[in-house]
Design a protein around this nucleic acid. Structure first.
Lengths: 168, 168
DNA sequence: TTGGAATGTCAACAAGGCTGACTTAAAACG
DNA sequence: CGTTTTAAGTCAGCCTTGTTGACATTCCAA
């Protein structure tokens, strides 16, 4: 598709052979497995799955968030999320409080027990990320995040950037 | 965990605050959704899933590969892969040939119909990747792949690098 | 006061993982 | 040659996590 003999003109044109793109695709596939491997082990020990991890992560990230907000970020159906939330609430990891202003809304917050799980999961995942960053070197880290952000759908990028702002 | 006031010494020490690491983790999560979004649409139209995509991709990548090799790369059970392979063979996308040297082995190859699907899927995914690379700029691309490779488990990195070599 | 939004719940289903048990065929080994 | 191991396939059953559709409740807001 893209001629390998093309040459760079400034920095707007890249050497993007199908071969290079394919390597990027495969790297993404294999790396995502590594990315989830450590949390998966911890979750399995405790009888939870990735869906629980995602819920716990974003509740930790935005305490007192509503179910609707969580639905938008996670991109799953209400029924699917509800099944996960129910077990987390039953197990005492998440607290669901009826909204004071709008009583239809439920505000979700981690309990101490929930924070303990979140900590275990994010420690593992951060360690993996930190090691990868160190191995790849300082210059690589910027590029990594830039490409990932550019790969997101605009909706998800919106959510991602909103989270970034909130985190400051 | 990591003190934000740490300073770089050479290039071995990075500014790795928990906040930065968390952003990387969330970027990975949202980006993977974008990464799979386009193929998912194509697959759904044709009644297939991600598992079929993965099989088709790696059979295309390593024609006449064996079932065992595919199992190692995909990291799933024989039963799980077999369910997918069976439908692909029944639908005439994949051809399974008994090995000439070792008659226990089945060698898997895409048919014309299989190549057509593979083309549609990889075109979509390559376009996404190309756009992301272009938006992120030439410097970012190197870093992106470096971090991804560093994030893989060693087994997966071995498979990834083996594929790279084969592609030359 | 009524429409619609936010939430929750029930039922049913599908994809795609998993384990365990078992068969067949063929290679490899001793 | 006989035994063991390997490659592949199959059956049955289970789990997680996604889906759709239908429906009830609560309650804000026009």
């Amino acid at each position: 598709m893209v001629d390998q003999s093309a040459h760079a003109s400034g920095e707007s044109l890249l050497f993007l052979t199908d071969e290079q793109l394919r390597k990027g695709i495969e790297a993404m596939f294999f790396a995502y497995r590594g990315f989830t491997a450590d949390p998966d082990r911890i979750l399995e020990e405790r009888g939870y799955g990735r869906a629980h991890h995602r819920a716990v992560h974003f509740i930790h990230r935005s305490p007192a968030t509503t179910v609707n907000n969580l639905l938008a970020i996670l991109g799953v159906t209400k029924q699917s999320l509800n099944r996960v939330l129910r077990t987390l609430i039953e197990d005492g990891l998440v607290e669901s409080k009826v909204g004071t202003k709008d009583k239809r809304e439920r505000h979700l917050t981690l309990t101490d027990k929930g924070r303990e799980l979140e900590r275990a999961l994010s420690d593992a995942q951060r360690n993996r990320m930190r090691d990868a960053y160190r191995k790849a070197g300082p210059d690589a880290v910027q590029g990594f995040r830039q490409v990932l952000v550019a790969m997101m759908d605009s909706d998800m990028r919106r959510h991602y950037l909103a989270l970034k702002d909130a985190g400051q």
